[in-house]
Design a protein around this nucleic acid. Structure first.
Lengths: 249, 249
DNA sequence: GTTGACCTTGACGTAGCGTCAACGTGTCTG
DNA sequence: CAGACACGTTGACGCTACGTCAAGGTCAAC
């Protein structure tokens, strides 16, 4: 038998056979005078063994180990481990399909930041129109949801929901307006401290708890990211607000 | 924000961020005087978008296409295709786990050729001891089962089962003995034709049908593989037997 | 001034082959 | 006998989505 016949017999390509030779999974057979590999039936049997294990999902390295140990106990171990791995993969795929199903159910489908319908509702009802600061907040919130691990997403949405309540919207507009006014002010402007205190006072309890749990004392990357987007006075407002919120606890 | 902060914020490594820059999935931001990349909040939003799509299982090429088209119709297409693909993967994994379960149930676990318990029974009951030819047949049969696609395996086992019946075993021993005797005979020896006829006559109908369906007129790689393992006279026996079997139909 | 944490580009490694490239062998045919 | 054609040989790069050095530059702190 030459390599093409062997490959056809077992149902693989010649490249695969040579690859297995290279990895030492299949012994190199005798060569003919012309340099062709000359296979016997037992080579086909060996190749079929390798293929079967590979098709089960073992890596070729694992196949080699199993065939080297030859006698059975190790094989069971490997297969059990493999089965557990496959089970994990099944769960992962099921989770992805579940998320896909949620996305596919929505009528408008955008690669947008609003992952969950719940979050979309919150963003819609939030007082986030018109102001650059409000735009930034929208980005921050989307980002928080996006970068959190899926298990915490519901918590985040729950934390933010109070902000979307009717009573808060007018207050929200007012606060953003006052923040905008401070764009070119000095960080020492008395209105800075005043606004920070007002914002801290109107922050819902759930959000305060969430902030305290997730923000490290230094403020963390989230606060840094916000500070990079605003003028010094506005940044001071945020820093003070966090301080005031911390004092509340 | 520098690259490390950005990466931490979104929950990826810096290498990933640079990789996305390289692929054009994420625009290169401004640089500081020192050559550092300087990110803004919107970069984090973009990165989070990419990540979300990637985590759903889209390839980065697909992510780029989706983000390029931007407006939604194409995205739904891609996601539906992806879902179908995931469904196929689930089936494939389930099938592998089913095969694994069968293997793990067996008490003796060898990387042997006998995949299915059914096949193992057939091989055990077959008249396959003692003779080199019988050993070869065992290898051929294991190989046939191994190299067939899983859906046809049951058919093959069913085809072979009649050979394992008690009535056939004595006849089988006799035929193998006569085949062994012809090892050094001439291909023209009258016993060759006689044995081939006898073998063809005792071949179960199911097996005849199977051979005719699967063997091409030339004999195919299976016959070639056998011919490579035996002496010329023995080879002639097999060739004639196939001929006689063909005449029966 | 030096440490240490962070950044830069560049390049190789991963799994399992697919797919050229450049060339030799073996058989059939005119 | 020459040429065509199928098939074989080794060698090397390509693919995914980054991980992981290597060799060096920047920046804030002590």
């Amino acid at each position: 038998m030459r390599i093409g016949e062997l490959a056809a017999l077992v149902g693989v390509t010649t490249r695969t056979v040579r690859h297995y030779h290279h990895l030492g999974l299949l012994p190199e057979p005798e060569r003919t005078a012309g340099g062709y590999r000359e296979y016997r039936l037992r080579d086909a049997v060996l190749l079929a063994r390798v293929r079967r294990l590979a098709e089960l999902g073992l890596s070729l390295d694992e196949v080699r180990d199993v065939l080297a140990d030859d006698r059975g106990k190790d094989l069971r171990e490997v297969l059990e481990e493999l089965d557990a791995d496959l089970a994990r993969q099944q769960e992962a795929i099921a989770a992805r399909r579940a998320r896909l199903a949620v996305l596919l159910e929505a009528d408008e489908l955008r690669p947008d930041s609003a992952v969950s319908p719940d979050m979309a509702v919150v963003l819609r009802d939030l007082a986030l129109e018109g102001s650059r600061l409000a735009e930034m907040d929208r980005e921050m919130l989307s980002l928080m949801e996006a970068s959190a691990d899926p298990e915490h997403r519901d918590e985040i949405v729950a934390m933010l929901r109070p902000l979307a309540e009717p009573g808060m919207r007018d207050k929200g507009h007012e606060l953003y307006r006052r923040l905008d006014e401070l764009a070119d002010a000095e960080p020492g402007d008395p209105r800075v401290r005043e606004l920070a205190a007002d914002m801290a006072a109107h922050m819902p309890d759930e959000l305060v708890r969430g902030m305290l749990e997730n923000l490290p004392p230094s403020g963390g990357p989230w606060l840094d990211a916000m500070l990079g987007e605003v003028t010094p006075a506005q940044g001071e407002v945020f820093r003070l607000m966090v301080e005031f919120v911390r004092e509340r606890a």
